[in-house]
Amino acid sequence: MTVAFDNSGGTAVRSGTVTFGTHVVGALGVDWGTVESTVGLPVPIGAGTRTERTWTVCVDRWRVPLGMHIETRDVSVRWE
């Protein structure tokens, strides 16, 4: 999953987290559950700059029964 971060503020971002919501989806499109994973922001992000970062999002095999698949649909950021 590649996410771009734009810091439009006047000071650098020095810490924070990114949380991914990966959904376990059944064959008929039913969302059976969400697995969250959290990683640190790629800091520092200077004032007025943009940076991109790519992460591999994994889910334990036992959480995804045969015939189901995963989709990372939600991304939230907490800037500190």
Rank of each mutant, 00 (worst) to 15 (best):
R61K: 11
T51F: 00
T11C: 14
G48N: 04
D31Q: 06
G48K: 03
W62D: 03
P65L: 11
V13I: 15
S8T: 07
D74G: 04
A12E: 10
V43G: 09
G67S: 10
G29H: 08
A4S: 13
L28C: 05
V18K: 11
V30M: 10
W32P: 05
H69R: 04
T38A: 08
F20M: 01
T49P: 03
V35E: 09
R50T: 08
G21C: 04
I45H: 04
L66N: 04
W79R: 09
G33H: 08
E36R: 05
L28N: 11
E80D: 15
S8A: 07
A4Q: 13
V64K: 00
V75T: 11
T51Q: 02
V39D: 05
S37D: 15
R78C: 13
G16T: 05
V57N: 08
A27W: 06
L28A: 12
D74Y: 01
I45M: 04
V59L: 13
T17H: 13
G9V: 01
T34K: 00
T11I: 12
E71S: 13
E52P: 00
T56N: 09
W32G: 12
G33N: 04
V35D: 06
V59M: 14
V39S: 09
S15H: 11
E71L: 09
S37I: 13
M68W: 15
A12Q: 10
T38C: 06
G29W: 09
T11F: 13
L28D: 11
E80A: 15
H69Y: 12
D31T: 12
G33C: 07
T2M: 15
V18C: 13
V59S: 11
G16F: 08
G16P: 04
R73N: 10
E71W: 10
D60V: 10
V30N: 10
V13N: 11
G10L: 14
V77E: 01
D74V: 01
C58T: 14
S76K: 08
T34W: 03
G16L: 07
W32I: 05
S8L: 06
P42G: 01
R50D: 00
G29Q: 04
E71G: 10
V77Q: 01
T72I: 11
G10H: 14
V24T: 06
T51P: 00
R63Y: 12
R78N: 15
V35C: 12
D60A: 10
G21N: 02
A12R: 07
G10S: 15
W62F: 09
R63C: 13
V30A: 13
W79T: 06
T17G: 14
V30D: 09
T54C: 06
D74P: 01
V64H: 03
R61I: 05
M68H: 14
D74W: 01
W32V: 07
S37Q: 15
C58K: 09
G26M: 03
D60T: 07
M1C: 01
V43L: 05
W32Y: 14
L28P: 00
D60P: 10
D60C: 00
T22S: 06
P42W: 00
R63N: 12
G40R: 03
V18P: 13
G33W: 11
D6W: 03
T34D: 06
R61Y: 01
N7P: 09
R53I: 14
T38Q: 11
